[in-house]
Design a protein around this nucleic acid. Structure first.
Lengths: 230, 230
DNA sequence: GCACTAAGTGTAGTATTTACACTAAGCCGA
DNA sequence: TCGGCTTAGTGTAAATACTACACTTAGTGC
């Protein structure tokens, strides 16, 4: 009947993903509505049990695609959560991941719309299943801590972005206001942004110049010991 | 016979610990010699399987005590490793931790001596079992990244230490030389070290003043948003 | 062409970081 | 006790980075 037997009791192993997305005005988190107990109908992080033939990273990507329609995102392991009572059914240890999705990418928007998932502002989350609120808070902490020392913010923006968009990103993630001139000076002095010949469209004021992040150059410098700091 | 049966296959879940210790001259890692296959007689990280009635943190502390005699150390979760073939026996996912031990504490020294564990310089590691070399490298990266932004270096030093000891710690962890006067200026300007009325003993030159870290004050400031940077 | 909106730009003052070398203190052995 | 050895402990000047701050420019829409 249940063909898998072991000499010692084993916890179930799961992954859960906190997907961040950047709106025009907000940093958002992707949530799905549970269809089955426990916490039926409650909002929760996309995730599920790890199979024996996949790594944790693979499980996280699979669950993201299956449950939320999210593919091709920046994904990084966050932390493993193991409270004895975090799942009322049985002992489940979950390895949490966080992902950064380009909400500007229509494929992401379309796929998540089709799956009926919700994007919630970080300060506007519904009650979450399990310990998922705690996981989201941990992910936000990690994002805040990492965004200044690694070029991960760009994963939330379209490939070409204005400096104002970039500044707003940092302001939202860090939770502080930044001075426009000082921010531009600093970010441009890194010499990692390339001015494109494109400008913003669809705005009813002066259009902003668009830049792209020179990842090649960053990788080269990083290999030589360069440490980003914003 | 094997009383634990499940509907789906489950990976075994383990913890492994990278314990760092600071010597007079070196940053060391604690290793144990395996008594059973696989990798019998090879050096490995202390660790073992997680029980159903304990969290990952608890499992890590239990294994540290059982296998290495190490207790009362700073312990923090590092990363979870899940390559399909990392254990030749079967699928094992391990949650790695790193710990910072005060090698100056005679209890640590005595207990690890009694257990026959080895302390190896980071640049002088033997061949390690499983993917443990990879785990050690990851732990060193994390320590290097964290030591400048969190007051964790003190966990490697005795409660009272000289500024030279502290500087050597940073130099060993970061892998760079630091200027003595600039280091002292910066570290003292944080106003988190308290000068004690004690000095170094047992040296055949001028004895250095000993300081202690004012953890209370740090916690207070941290709660108010202060961010350490060294 | 006027009103509106956000883009884009410079400077001066302050704080931080860097580079750098000698004197002071304590121990030891002759 | 004196001389030699070893590490502790200290200041300054130049360069760099950070901060605060306000107006002009470009484009859209009425």
């Amino acid at each position: 009947m249940s063909p898998y037997t072991y000499e010692y009791a084993r916890a179930a192993l799961a992954v859960d993903c906190v997907v961040f997305g950047l709106d025009e005005t907000d940093l958002k988190v992707l949530l799905i509505q549970r269809r089955i107990p426990p916490f039926q109908h409650a909002w929760a992080l996309p995730g599920g049990f790890v199979r024996l033939d996949e790594t944790l990273d693979e499980a996280a990507r699979r669950e993201l695609a299956e449950e939320a329609g999210v593919t091709d995102v920046y994904l990084e392991q966050l932390y493993s959560f193991s409270s004895l009572d975090r799942d009322p059914r049985e002992r489940v240890v979950t390895v949490a991941y966080y992902a950064l999705a380009k909400l500007s990418d229509h494929r992401i928007r379309a796929a998540t719309d089709a799956m009926g998932v919700g994007w919630f502002g970080l300060d506007d989350l519904p009650k979450l299943a399990f310990d998922h609120a705690h996981i989201v808070a941990t992910a936000h902490d990690r994002l805040r801590g990492k965004v200044r020392y690694a070029p991960i913010g760009f994963e939330l923006l379209p490939p070409r972005f204005s400096l104002t968009q970039l500044q707003r990103l940092y302001e939202l993630v860090l939770g502080t206001d930044l001075d426009k001139r000082n921010f531009r000076k600093k970010i441009l002095s890194l010499d990692l942004l390339v001015e494109t010949d494109e400008v913003e469209t669809g705005v009813r004021h002066r259009a902003a110049r668009l830049y792209r992040f020179d990842r090649r150059k960053y990788e080269r410098l990083a290999k030589q010991g360069f440490e980003l700091s914003i």
